[in-house]
Protein backbone atom coordinates (compact mmCIF):
# COMPACT_ATOMS: atom_id res chain seq x y z
CA UNK A 1 0.00 0.00 0.00
CA UNK A 2 1.43 3.34 -1.08
CA UNK A 3 1.00 6.31 1.24
CA UNK A 4 0.42 9.91 0.27
CA UNK A 5 3.21 12.32 1.19
CA UNK A 6 1.30 13.66 4.20
CA UNK A 7 0.63 10.16 5.49
CA UNK A 8 4.27 9.26 4.95
CA UNK A 9 5.27 12.29 6.99
CA UNK A 10 2.83 11.32 9.73
CA UNK A 11 4.31 7.83 9.63
CA UNK A 12 7.85 9.27 9.80
CA UNK A 13 6.79 11.33 12.82
CA UNK A 14 5.96 8.10 14.67
CA UNK A 15 9.65 7.26 14.40
CA UNK A 16 10.86 10.75 15.37
CA UNK A 17 11.99 11.61 11.86
CA UNK A 18 11.73 15.42 11.75
CA UNK A 19 9.41 16.95 9.15
CA UNK A 20 8.27 20.54 8.53
CA UNK A 21 5.30 21.78 10.52
CA UNK A 22 2.21 21.56 8.37
CA UNK A 23 -1.24 20.15 7.88
CA UNK A 24 -3.61 18.60 5.39
CA UNK A 25 -6.46 20.45 3.67
CA UNK A 26 -9.15 19.45 1.23
CA UNK A 27 -10.62 22.94 0.84
CA UNK A 28 -9.14 26.40 0.26
CA UNK A 29 -10.40 27.58 3.67
CA UNK A 30 -8.70 24.68 5.41
CA UNK A 31 -5.49 25.42 3.51
CA UNK A 32 -5.58 28.98 4.85
CA UNK A 33 -6.04 27.70 8.40
CA UNK A 34 -3.18 25.23 8.02
CA UNK A 35 -0.92 27.91 6.54
CA UNK A 36 -1.55 30.22 9.47
CA UNK A 37 -0.77 27.41 11.89
CA UNK A 38 2.45 26.46 10.07
CA UNK A 39 3.62 30.06 9.67
CA UNK A 40 4.52 31.87 6.44
CA UNK A 41 6.04 31.36 3.98
CA UNK A 42 4.41 28.01 3.18
CA UNK A 43 4.52 25.46 0.40
CA UNK A 44 1.21 24.15 -0.96
CA UNK A 45 1.72 20.59 -2.22
CA UNK A 46 -0.69 18.47 -4.23
CA UNK A 47 -1.25 15.04 -2.65
CA UNK A 48 -1.11 12.50 -5.46
CA UNK A 49 0.75 9.21 -5.74
CA UNK A 50 2.62 10.05 -8.91
CA UNK A 51 5.97 11.67 -9.67
CA UNK A 52 6.44 15.04 -11.36
CA UNK A 53 4.03 17.04 -9.18
CA UNK A 54 6.28 20.10 -9.25
CA UNK A 55 6.55 20.27 -13.03
CA UNK A 56 2.78 19.85 -13.33
CA UNK A 57 2.26 22.94 -11.17
CA UNK A 58 1.22 20.94 -8.12
CA UNK A 59 3.75 22.47 -5.72
CA UNK A 60 3.69 26.24 -5.08
CA UNK A 61 5.30 28.66 -2.64
CA UNK A 62 2.92 31.08 -0.90
CA UNK A 63 4.09 34.11 1.08
CA UNK A 64 0.70 35.20 2.37
CA UNK A 65 -2.94 34.24 2.70
CA UNK A 66 -3.86 35.63 -0.72
CA UNK A 67 -1.26 33.42 -2.40
CA UNK A 68 -2.37 30.36 -0.41
CA UNK A 69 -5.94 30.94 -1.61
CA UNK A 70 -4.78 31.30 -5.22
CA UNK A 71 -2.55 28.22 -5.22
CA UNK A 72 -4.85 25.96 -3.18
CA UNK A 73 -7.76 26.85 -5.48
CA UNK A 74 -5.66 26.02 -8.54
CA UNK A 75 -4.17 22.80 -7.19
CA UNK A 76 -7.29 21.27 -5.59
CA UNK A 77 -9.15 19.46 -8.34
CA UNK A 78 -6.11 19.50 -10.65
CA UNK A 79 -5.47 16.43 -12.77
CA UNK A 80 -1.85 15.30 -12.55
CA UNK A 81 -1.12 12.45 -14.97
CA UNK A 82 -4.61 11.07 -14.47
CA UNK A 83 -4.56 11.50 -10.69
CA UNK A 84 -7.17 13.87 -9.24
CA UNK A 85 -5.86 16.15 -6.49
CA UNK A 86 -8.30 15.90 -3.59
CA UNK A 87 -6.03 17.24 -0.84
CA UNK A 88 -3.12 19.57 -0.40
CA UNK A 89 -0.42 19.47 2.24
CA UNK A 90 0.50 22.94 3.51
CA UNK A 91 3.81 23.21 5.32
CA UNK A 92 6.29 25.84 6.44
CA UNK A 93 8.76 26.53 3.64
CA UNK A 94 12.25 25.55 4.75
CA UNK A 95 15.50 27.22 3.71
CA UNK A 96 17.72 24.65 2.10
CA UNK A 97 21.52 24.55 2.29
CA UNK A 98 21.97 21.06 0.91
CA UNK A 99 19.80 18.23 -0.36
CA UNK A 100 20.33 14.52 0.10
CA UNK A 101 18.51 11.36 -0.90
CA UNK A 102 17.99 8.49 1.52
CA UNK A 103 15.98 5.29 1.24
CA UNK A 104 15.71 1.81 2.66
CA UNK A 105 14.30 -1.06 0.67
CA UNK A 106 14.70 -4.81 0.43
CA UNK A 107 17.35 -5.93 -2.06
CA UNK A 108 15.64 -9.06 -3.34
CA UNK A 109 18.73 -10.39 -5.07
CA UNK A 110 20.98 -10.02 -2.00
CA UNK A 111 18.07 -10.76 0.38
CA UNK A 112 19.30 -7.95 2.57
CA UNK A 113 18.20 -4.47 3.51
CA UNK A 114 19.50 -1.87 1.09
CA UNK A 115 20.34 1.69 2.08
CA UNK A 116 20.73 4.19 -0.69
CA UNK A 117 22.20 7.55 0.17
CA UNK A 118 23.37 10.30 -2.11
CA UNK A 119 24.14 13.97 -2.20
CA UNK A 120 22.25 16.04 -4.71
CA UNK A 121 23.71 18.68 -6.95
CA UNK A 122 27.15 17.17 -7.38
CA UNK A 123 28.33 18.08 -3.90
CA UNK A 124 31.16 15.81 -2.82
CA UNK A 125 30.19 13.65 0.13
CA UNK A 126 33.51 14.60 1.75
CA UNK A 127 32.48 18.22 1.60
CA UNK A 128 29.48 17.62 3.82
CA UNK A 129 30.21 19.17 7.18
CA UNK A 130 30.92 16.84 10.08
CA UNK A 131 27.89 18.14 11.91
CA UNK A 132 25.56 17.22 9.07
CA UNK A 133 27.07 13.74 8.78
CA UNK A 134 26.10 13.06 12.38
CA UNK A 135 22.67 14.54 11.80
CA UNK A 136 22.16 12.43 8.69
CA UNK A 137 23.33 9.31 10.51
CA UNK A 138 20.83 9.89 13.29
CA UNK A 139 18.01 10.22 10.79
CA UNK A 140 19.13 7.10 8.94
CA UNK A 141 18.85 5.12 12.17
CA UNK A 142 15.31 6.41 12.61
CA UNK A 143 14.46 5.74 8.97
CA UNK A 144 15.77 2.18 9.38
CA UNK A 145 13.49 1.67 12.38
CA UNK A 146 10.61 3.02 10.34
CA UNK A 147 11.49 0.62 7.51
CA UNK A 148 11.83 -2.49 9.69
CA UNK A 149 9.51 -1.98 12.67
CA UNK A 150 7.12 -0.05 10.46
CA UNK A 151 7.03 -2.88 7.90
CA UNK A 152 7.73 -0.76 4.84
CA UNK A 153 8.50 -2.08 1.37
CA UNK A 154 10.07 1.31 0.77
CA UNK A 155 10.91 4.19 3.09
CA UNK A 156 12.32 7.06 1.05
CA UNK A 157 13.22 10.66 1.85
CA UNK A 158 13.82 12.75 -1.25
CA UNK A 159 15.00 15.26 -0.46
CA UNK A 160 16.43 15.06 2.99
CA UNK A 161 17.56 18.62 3.60
CA UNK A 162 20.22 20.38 5.58
CA UNK A 163 19.01 23.83 6.66
CA UNK A 164 21.39 26.80 6.96
CA UNK A 165 20.86 26.48 10.70
CA UNK A 166 22.39 22.99 10.63
CA UNK A 167 19.14 21.11 11.24
CA UNK A 168 18.22 18.19 9.06
CA UNK A 169 14.77 17.01 8.16
CA UNK A 170 12.59 15.21 5.63
CA UNK A 171 11.12 17.54 3.02
CA UNK A 172 9.24 14.74 1.26
CA UNK A 173 8.14 11.23 2.18
CA UNK A 174 7.57 8.22 0.01
CA UNK A 175 6.39 5.24 2.00
CA UNK A 176 5.07 1.95 0.68
CA UNK A 177 3.74 -0.47 3.30
CA UNK A 178 3.88 -4.27 3.14
CA UNK A 179 0.27 -5.43 3.02
CA UNK A 180 1.27 -8.77 4.53
CA UNK A 181 2.17 -7.00 7.79
CA UNK A 182 -1.19 -5.30 8.19
CA UNK A 183 -2.25 -7.74 10.93
CA UNK A 184 0.22 -6.17 13.35
CA UNK A 185 -0.45 -2.54 12.40
CA UNK A 186 -3.93 -1.48 13.45
CA UNK A 187 -2.82 2.12 12.83
CA UNK A 188 -2.81 1.42 9.08
CA UNK A 189 -6.61 1.35 9.02
CA UNK A 190 -6.75 5.10 8.36
CA UNK A 191 -4.47 4.73 5.33
CA UNK A 192 -6.81 2.11 3.89
CA UNK A 193 -9.62 4.66 3.97
CA UNK A 194 -7.81 7.07 1.65
CA UNK A 195 -6.38 4.46 -0.70
CA UNK A 196 -6.83 5.30 -4.38
CA UNK A 197 -9.10 2.56 -5.71
CA UNK A 198 -11.69 2.54 -8.44
CA UNK A 199 -15.22 1.43 -7.58
CA UNK A 200 -14.59 -2.10 -8.80
CA UNK A 201 -11.51 -2.37 -6.61
CA UNK A 202 -13.43 -1.02 -3.60
CA UNK A 203 -16.14 -3.63 -4.07
CA UNK A 204 -13.52 -6.37 -4.43
CA UNK A 205 -11.79 -5.14 -1.26
CA UNK A 206 -15.06 -5.34 0.67
CA UNK A 207 -15.44 -8.92 -0.48
CA UNK A 208 -11.87 -9.84 0.39
CA UNK A 209 -10.70 -10.54 -3.16
CA UNK A 210 -7.32 -9.97 -4.81
CA UNK A 211 -8.45 -7.72 -7.64
CA UNK A 212 -6.78 -5.21 -9.95
CA UNK A 213 -8.95 -3.26 -12.40
CA UNK A 214 -7.79 -3.12 -16.03
CA UNK A 215 -9.30 -1.64 -19.21
CA UNK A 216 -10.34 -4.63 -21.33
CA UNK A 217 -13.59 -6.51 -21.91
CA UNK A 218 -12.88 -10.07 -20.75
CA UNK A 219 -13.53 -10.49 -17.03
CA UNK A 220 -10.99 -12.86 -15.48
CA UNK A 221 -11.32 -15.15 -12.49
CA UNK A 222 -8.45 -17.53 -11.84
CA UNK A 223 -7.02 -19.35 -8.86
CA UNK A 224 -3.47 -18.50 -8.06
CA UNK A 225 -1.64 -15.33 -8.96
CA UNK A 226 0.54 -17.00 -11.57
CA UNK A 227 -2.40 -18.58 -13.37
CA UNK A 228 -4.32 -15.29 -13.23
CA UNK A 229 -1.36 -13.44 -14.78
CA UNK A 230 -1.00 -16.18 -17.34
CA UNK A 231 -4.71 -15.95 -18.18
CA UNK A 232 -4.30 -12.22 -18.87
CA UNK A 233 -1.37 -13.01 -21.14
CA UNK A 234 -3.21 -15.73 -23.05
CA UNK A 235 -6.29 -13.54 -23.54
CA UNK A 236 -3.98 -10.90 -24.96
CA UNK A 237 -2.28 -13.41 -27.28
CA UNK A 238 -5.57 -14.52 -28.83
CA UNK A 239 -6.60 -10.95 -29.58
CA UNK A 240 -8.56 -9.89 -26.52
CA UNK A 241 -7.91 -7.80 -23.48
CA UNK A 242 -8.61 -8.46 -19.82
CA UNK A 243 -10.95 -6.27 -17.77
CA UNK A 244 -9.21 -7.23 -14.57
CA UNK A 245 -6.84 -9.43 -12.62
CA UNK A 246 -8.67 -11.51 -10.03
CA UNK A 247 -7.09 -14.28 -8.01
CA UNK A 248 -9.65 -16.15 -5.91
CA UNK A 249 -6.70 -17.82 -4.21
CA UNK A 250 -6.29 -21.08 -2.44
CA UNK A 251 -9.26 -22.52 -0.61
CA UNK A 252 -11.76 -20.62 -2.72
CA UNK A 253 -15.27 -21.72 -1.82
CA UNK A 254 -18.82 -21.06 -3.01
CA UNK A 255 -19.01 -17.71 -1.23
CA UNK A 256 -15.73 -16.44 -2.70
CA UNK A 257 -16.69 -17.51 -6.20
CA UNK A 258 -20.07 -15.80 -5.89
CA UNK A 259 -18.36 -12.66 -4.63
CA UNK A 260 -15.88 -12.79 -7.52
CA UNK A 261 -18.68 -13.07 -10.07
CA UNK A 262 -20.54 -10.18 -8.45
CA UNK A 263 -17.47 -7.94 -8.72
CA UNK A 264 -16.90 -8.91 -12.36
CA UNK A 265 -20.58 -8.39 -13.11
CA UNK A 266 -20.41 -4.87 -11.65
CA UNK A 267 -17.88 -3.87 -14.34
CA UNK A 268 -19.95 -2.51 -17.25
CA UNK A 269 -17.15 -3.07 -19.79
CA UNK A 270 -17.11 -6.83 -19.23
CA UNK A 271 -18.52 -8.68 -22.26
CA UNK A 272 -17.49 -12.20 -21.34
CA UNK A 273 -16.18 -13.92 -18.22
CA UNK A 274 -13.29 -16.35 -18.33
CA UNK A 275 -12.96 -18.61 -15.29
CA UNK A 276 -9.68 -20.46 -15.28
CA UNK A 277 -9.29 -22.91 -12.43
CA UNK A 278 -6.59 -25.45 -11.86
CA UNK A 279 -7.28 -27.30 -8.66
CA UNK A 280 -4.69 -27.64 -5.96
CA UNK A 281 -6.05 -26.22 -2.73
CA UNK A 282 -9.13 -25.05 -4.57
CA UNK A 283 -11.30 -28.08 -5.19
CA UNK A 284 -13.24 -28.40 -8.41
CA UNK A 285 -16.57 -29.21 -6.79
CA UNK A 286 -16.31 -26.11 -4.58
CA UNK A 287 -15.71 -23.96 -7.64
CA UNK A 288 -18.63 -25.54 -9.47
CA UNK A 289 -20.98 -25.15 -6.48
CA UNK A 290 -19.91 -21.54 -6.23
CA UNK A 291 -20.75 -20.87 -9.87
CA UNK A 292 -24.13 -22.58 -9.62
CA UNK A 293 -24.92 -20.64 -6.46
CA UNK A 294 -23.73 -17.36 -7.94
CA UNK A 295 -25.87 -17.88 -11.02
CA UNK A 296 -28.83 -18.20 -8.66
CA UNK A 297 -27.86 -15.07 -6.75
CA UNK A 298 -26.63 -12.75 -9.48
CA UNK A 299 -28.10 -12.04 -12.85
CA UNK A 300 -24.93 -12.07 -14.92
CA UNK A 301 -24.77 -9.69 -17.86
CA UNK A 302 -22.05 -11.62 -19.65
CA UNK A 303 -21.66 -15.30 -20.51
CA UNK A 304 -19.08 -17.47 -18.74
CA UNK A 305 -16.45 -19.65 -20.33
CA UNK A 306 -14.86 -22.00 -17.83
CA UNK A 307 -11.82 -24.19 -17.87
CA UNK A 308 -11.69 -26.47 -14.86
CA UNK A 309 -8.87 -28.90 -14.13
CA UNK A 310 -6.93 -30.47 -11.27
CA UNK A 311 -8.14 -31.63 -7.85
CA UNK A 312 -11.71 -32.95 -8.07
CA UNK A 313 -12.17 -31.29 -11.46
CA UNK A 314 -14.29 -34.16 -12.75
CA UNK A 315 -16.71 -33.82 -9.82
CA UNK A 316 -16.86 -30.11 -10.55
CA UNK A 317 -17.65 -30.61 -14.23
CA UNK A 318 -20.39 -33.06 -13.27
CA UNK A 319 -21.97 -30.53 -10.93
CA UNK A 320 -21.99 -27.91 -13.70
CA UNK A 321 -23.44 -30.37 -16.20
CA UNK A 322 -26.22 -31.59 -13.92
CA UNK A 323 -27.19 -28.03 -12.97
CA UNK A 324 -28.76 -27.63 -16.42
CA UNK A 325 -27.21 -24.26 -17.19
CA UNK A 326 -27.77 -23.25 -20.86
CA UNK A 327 -24.69 -22.94 -23.06
CA UNK A 328 -25.52 -19.29 -23.72
CA UNK A 329 -24.82 -18.68 -20.03
CA UNK A 330 -21.92 -21.04 -19.41
CA UNK A 331 -19.72 -23.15 -21.61
CA UNK A 332 -16.87 -25.41 -20.60
CA UNK A 333 -13.60 -25.75 -22.54
CA UNK A 334 -10.91 -28.33 -21.93
CA UNK A 335 -7.82 -26.11 -22.27
CA UNK A 336 -6.74 -22.62 -21.26
CA UNK A 337 -6.15 -21.59 -24.87
CA UNK A 338 -9.52 -22.83 -26.12
CA UNK A 339 -11.29 -21.19 -23.20
CA UNK A 340 -9.48 -17.92 -23.87
CA UNK A 341 -10.35 -18.07 -27.58
CA UNK A 342 -14.03 -18.67 -26.79
CA UNK A 343 -14.17 -15.86 -24.22
CA UNK A 344 -12.40 -13.43 -26.55
CA UNK A 345 -14.68 -14.36 -29.45
CA UNK A 346 -17.74 -13.53 -27.33
CA UNK A 347 -16.21 -10.31 -26.03
CA UNK A 348 -15.17 -9.11 -29.48
CA UNK A 349 -18.57 -9.95 -30.99
CA UNK A 350 -20.42 -7.78 -28.47
Amino acid sequence: MDLFEYQGKQYFARFDIPVSPGGIADTVEEAVVQAAAAGYPVVVKAQVQVGGRGKAGGIKLANNEEEVRLHAANILGMDIKGHLVERVWVEYASDIAEEYYASFTLDRAAKKHLLMLSVEGGVEIEAVAEKSVEGVASILVKLYRCFTEGDCDLAEINPLILKPTGEIHALDAKVSLDNNAEFRHPEWAEYRETEVLDERELLAREKGLQYIGLQGSVGIIANGAGLAMSTLDVVNQVGGSAANFLDIGGGANADLMSAALEVINYDQSVKSILINIFGGITRGEEVAKGIVEALNRVSLRAPIVIRLDGTNAEEGRQILLSAGIPESVLQSKPTMLEAARAAVAIANAN
Binding site: A222, G224, A225, G226, L227, S230, G250, G279, G280
Partner: peptide, 9 residues
Amino acid sequence: SRSGTLTYQ
Protein backbone atom coordinates in the same frame (compact mmCIF):
# COMPACT_ATOMS: atom_id res chain seq x y z
CA SER B 1 8.33 -22.68 -10.74
CA ARG B 2 7.54 -19.48 -8.84
CA SER B 3 3.79 -19.93 -9.16
CA GLY B 4 1.57 -22.58 -7.58
CA THR B 5 -1.14 -23.08 -10.15
CA LEU B 6 1.30 -22.67 -13.03
CA THR B 7 3.32 -25.48 -11.45
CA TYR B 8 0.24 -27.71 -11.72
CA GLN B 9 -0.27 -26.45 -15.24
